[in-house]
Design a protein around this nucleic acid. Structure first.
Length: 721
DNA sequence: CAGTGAGCGAGCTTCCGCTTGACTT
């Protein structure tokens, strides 16, 4: 493996900053947010510098109460975050020993607030130390040394913008959530971000539900010329786009065409340039890892974190990627020089004359670089011995995307051949890559375009023979439910949430049981729909996607000192709180809506069981509670082996749902397909819900000897969640 | 593609956005 000799970023050669005379022999404490970052930065600075990490916010509002003094202009009550007192104490001790403290938290809104809180907390304990703020947007020796040389002061307006953001979110969350406890169920939650995300998912579900699939047919035919056979699709009938509604219409066309001569009437070649994509931001990484590797957002972030923190390579610990929570596609000059040198060495003909520049998104706070490999020389293959399968796959897509982003575009050629048969025109087209360009470094990320597609070599006037027809029935597809990938994409587009919160947003919706994930689709539960409807009804503007956008533009004004944060909050709060109180008084309670009396008798006392929602989903409890405390899982079907009940269970490890018999271990029947409350019309055993990309959800018999399949769409008995 | 196994839930919760360990249910 190519061991790094002297990359600017290894810091193997300790570069030292020449201390200013005044600082000679003095001690400087630098505080950053991430410990991995602290280690790297320490290598770039001289021995008078000590670099410590705050690990994010140390001071915040209390968790157990509102913590905002409404009567005194929304004064926030800031306390040391539970569990963080130790770190704060250590930093205070370090600051006491230092002659100067440089607050180097991230160069964004939250980072500024962290610096401000630290300043207050440290100044109280160490009056002699000079406390200043430094910032940088990339972790390179030049950027760090430059930042250290030019310390500044904290931007109070930026801190105020964070304060406004924090207070607003607290006011929204801690007023709406208790309302839900009162009206629906204890422990529920609502907030500016999670409720907007929930609404997106519920709105989409309504579109899915109201979609009516329509039947249509396509016609393909095999054409024979000499020994070659190829398939072409009917693209025109009597000079119009074919509109085949049913089998009879297709059959009619086939009858009219059969026996007719076929002749090539047109051949068109088109060339297309495919440009590489910019290196990854957090949202793009999550989307690509979800689509290509099947990772959830959570898994992507956990895996990326390990690559960032570093892995042991030949007894030294090396961070393989830059910071993974970023909204920027910007890369440092050093990284650019490195990757261009690498491309020049390995693919000299694919190095563009000039570096490719990518525009940083408008909403980006741009505090970090794009996610990229720290050393281009560490090719994915070289990392194989040091990484788990998933780490390697994630590293590979990061590496490929980054290197490709600075390479020449690819070119494809598409050849479309039109064949006339009677009144119909059939088309066959194939695409070939004629210049591979950046695809040369793409293995895992290779796309459809890259796959070599062949096309028949024909010329105009060639006559052909139809060998076989392939009429095929289809149904128009409704909108797709959100996946991890598409919800993150939408949230980012709407400016809702931040790179550090995309994965947690999905997790909280799952934890609250507002949404379930089935075959990678996010499906709202009855509870989720109920909460969403309630919020939309009572607080339409708060749960709307535009609310965050409006908030952001006000925060910008606060940051520009054109609006005071007090005014911003005051303006929002009084009508909001009025509405909260009004809804609290007038809205009906939905507590009963989630409970349903069943006709299943309790086996202990005979009274009917009630379906209730607990922390792990629905369960059955005796209606005589608390006299009878009997509970049980909901029987989903009868076990085909022993006649026992089939219930939902979770695996020990990852908590994946499966369905097993209550008589386990004496009966070991198991399936991972979800049972439907219906029996197979063919053999009488129960049916399960299956899914594949092509057909979507459909019903299938559990009996392996029975081949019964049926689609769901006709009567819309959707999976009960 | 194969393999996947507890039993519980029913009073004090919750927000968003920074960041990683942790110590027992």
């Amino acid at each position: 493996m190519a061991r790094k000799t002297d990359s600017a970023e290894t810091g193997t050669k300790k570069k030292t900053v020449k201390p200013k005379p005044a600082l000679k022999d003095k001690k400087v404490l630098v505080i950053v947010e991430s410990p991995a970052k602290a280690k790297t930065i320490e290598k770039y600075l001289g021995s008078i510098y000590t670099v410590k990490a705050s690990m994010g916010h140390l001071i915040d509002l209390p968790k157990s109460r509102l913590g905002i003094d409404i009567d005194h202009d929304f004064e926030p009550e800031y306390i040391t975050v539970r569990g963080r007192a130790k770190i704060l104490k250590e930093l205070q001790g370090d600051a006491k020993k230092a002659d100067m403290v440089l607050l180097a938290s991230d160069n964004d809104r939250e980072g500024e607030a962290i610096a401000w809180h630290l300043q207050n907390a440290l100044a109280a304990k160490s009056k002699q130390a000079l406390i200043q703020r430094i910032s940088f947007n990339e972790i390179t020796p030049a950027a760090i040394q430059d930042a250290v040389a030019r310390p500044g002061v904290i931007d109070e307006a930026k801190v105020n913008a964070q304060k406004a953001r924090r207070v607003l979110d607290r006011l929204v969350g801690y007023n709406l959530s208790p309302l839900l406890w009162k009206k629906v169920k204890n422990g529920l939650s609502a907030g500016r971000v999670q409720s907007a995300a929930l609404k997106l998912i519920c709105d989409r579900e309504k579109e899915v539900e109201s979609f009516i699939p329509e039947e249509y047919w396509t016609l393909e035919a095999d054409f024979k010329v000499g020994r070659t056979v190829f398939t072409a699709q009917l693209i025109s009938w009597k000079a119009a786009k074919p509109d085949l509604k049913n089998e009879a219409e297709v059959k009619a066309i086939i009858a009219l065409i059969t026996g007719k001569d076929s002749v090539v009437i047109d051949i068109r070649e088109t060339e297309k340039t495919l440009r590489p994509k910019p290196p990854f931001t957090t949202s793009q990484l999550q989307q690509t890892a979800a689509n290509r590797l099947g990772f959830t957002s959570k898994k992507t972030m956990q895996t990326a974190q390990r690559l960032y923190e570093g892995i042991n390579i030949e007894s030294s610990r090396i961070g393989l990627i830059t910071y993974m929570r970023t909204d920027s596609v910007r890369i440092s000059q050093v990284a650019l020089d490195d990757v261009r040198a690498w491309i020049e060495k390995n693919y000299p003909t694919d190095l563009p004359e000039k570096p490719i520049l990518y525009a940083v998104g408008k909403k980006a706070q741009d505090a970090h670089e794009a996610i990229r490999p720290t050393y281009v020389n560490y090719k994915p293959d070289d990392m194989k011995p040091y990484l788990s399968r998933d780490e390697l796959r994630l590293y590979t897509i990061i590496w490929e995307r980054f290197v490709a982003s600075q390479m020449n575009p690819a070119k494809t050629k598409t050849v479309s051949t039109d064949i006339q048969t009677g009144d119909g025109i059939f088309r066959v087209s194939g695409t070939k890559i004629i210049e591979k360009g950046f695809y040369k470094v793409m293995k895992l990320l290779a796309s459809k375009e890259e796959k070599q597609d062949s096309y028949p070599v024909l010329k105009i006037g060639d006559s052909l023979k139809i060998d076989k027809f392939y009429p095929e029935q289809h149904f128009t597809q409704g909108p797709a439910r959100y996946s991890d990938a598409s919800i993150v994409k939408t949230l980012e587009e709407k400016g809702i949430g931040r790179p550090s919160t995309y994965a947690p947003i999905i997790s909280v919706l799952l934890d609250r049981y507002y949404v379930t994930r089935s075959n990678k689709q996010l499906i709202p539960t009855l509870l989720g729909k109920l909460i969403c409807d309630m919020l939309v009804e009572s607080f339409p503007y708060v749960v709307n996607s535009d609310f965050t956008a409006a908030m952001e533009s006000k925060l910008d004004a606060v940051e520009e000192s054109q609006l005071s944060w007090h005014n911003m909050i005051r303006e929002f709060y009084s009508p909001f709180k009025e509405r909260v109180d009004e809804v609290g008084k007038t809205l009906e309670s939905f507590k009963g809506a989630l409970e349903e009396v069943t006709n299943i008798p309790c086996e202990k006392c005979g009274k009917p069981l009630v379906k209730k929602m607990g922390r792990f989903g629905f369960f059955l409890a005796c209606s005589a509670f608390p006299e009878c405390r009997n509970t049980k899982s909901i029987p989903l079907a009868k076990c085909p082996h022993c006649g026992g009940d089939i219930i939902s269970r979770k695996t020990k490890g990852r908590g994946k749902e499966f369905y097993g018999c209550t008589n386990y271990p004496s009966c070991d029947f198991i399936t991972h397909f979800k049972p439907i409350n219906q029996n197979c019309p063919k053999c009488g055993q129960f049916m399960v819900e299956k899914y594949d990309k092509k057909n979507g959800f459909y019903k299938s018999c559990i009996n392996p000897d029975c081949d019964y399949l049926h689609s769901f769409d006709s009567d819309r008995e959707k999976p009960e969640v």
